Amino acid sequence: MAEKPVLIFDFDGTLVNSMGSFASLAAHLMGDYYGTKLEWAKKQYQLTSGLPFCEQLERIFPKHPLNFLISLIFEEYKKAFYKTYPFFPDVQEALENLKKNGYRLVVSSNNKESLIRQKLVNHLSFFDLILGYRTGFSKGPQHFNHIQNQLACNTNEMIFIGDSLHDGAMAKKCNIPFIARIGTFSSSTFKKQGIALAHIDSLNKLIPIFENKTLDSQNLFLET
């Protein structure tokens, strides 16, 4: 990878510390409307994280008649409280350094683009593209293809940074190297899945990895 890669960031759980709140909200909604236990519901939310919530519900409760309604309720709650969810402490410094060093930065999320832009109001200048979810346009091949077209890059010039197993699986399927942000899942969990090029607990570790390591195999694990 001779040129500096295009860095594609997931949003929730990667830049914004929101996944714990989302899991709690989802678990309470599942308990209220589907009669499930909170711990089980939180686990199911976590395991399907990375998908739009409407698709998560379809995975957890296939074809349940309440799924569409509950996904709408979830999105309304999320919209009401989203401004209270903080960025991770390393985000500002990491984005500044990456941009200063010439990396092109992209957000790719299954959150709604309007919410992402509101949250990034003081960080918009860092990003070359901000991509959110809408019907027929979601994180994964659709976003990746759009990035390639807009930024004139190939998959071997892109790196995806995310916090979920779904993020890693999508990147692997699309032949895009994946770096796992530890938090939603542990380093050992990602290692068992064999989908992460590196595991980091801070975005400030990205530049040292790029400067000192060769990123050319999704089967290579870099302990950071």
Rank of each mutant, 00 (worst) to 15 (best):
A2G: 15
A2Q: 10
I8H: 09
F11M: 10
G13S: 09
G13L: 09
T14F: 03
N17C: 13
M19H: 00
F22G: 00
A26T: 10
Y33T: 07
T36I: 03
L38H: 12
W40V: 13
K42M: 15
K42D: 02
Q44P: 00
Y45A: 12
S49E: 05
S49L: 01
Q56F: 10
Q56G: 03
E58H: 06
R59M: 11
P65D: 06
N67Q: 09
L69G: 00
I70K: 01
L72N: 15
I73S: 00
E75Y: 06
E76A: 12
K79S: 15
A80L: 08
T84L: 13
Y85F: 15
G102N: 11
R104C: 04
R104P: 00
V106H: 07
S108L: 06
S108W: 00
S109R: 01
S109H: 08
S109A: 04
E113I: 11
I116M: 03
V121F: 10
N122A: 01
S125D: 14
Y133M: 06
S138G: 01
H143I: 01
F144N: 07
Q148H: 01
Q150F: 03
C153P: 02
F160G: 08
F160R: 01
G162I: 05
G162Y: 11
D167Q: 05
A169W: 06
A171T: 00
R181C: 12
I182K: 09
F185K: 14
S186N: 06
S187L: 10
K191E: 15
K191L: 05
G194Y: 12
I195Q: 07
L197D: 00
I200P: 08
S202N: 08
K205I: 00
Q218N: 13
F221R: 00
L222D: 03
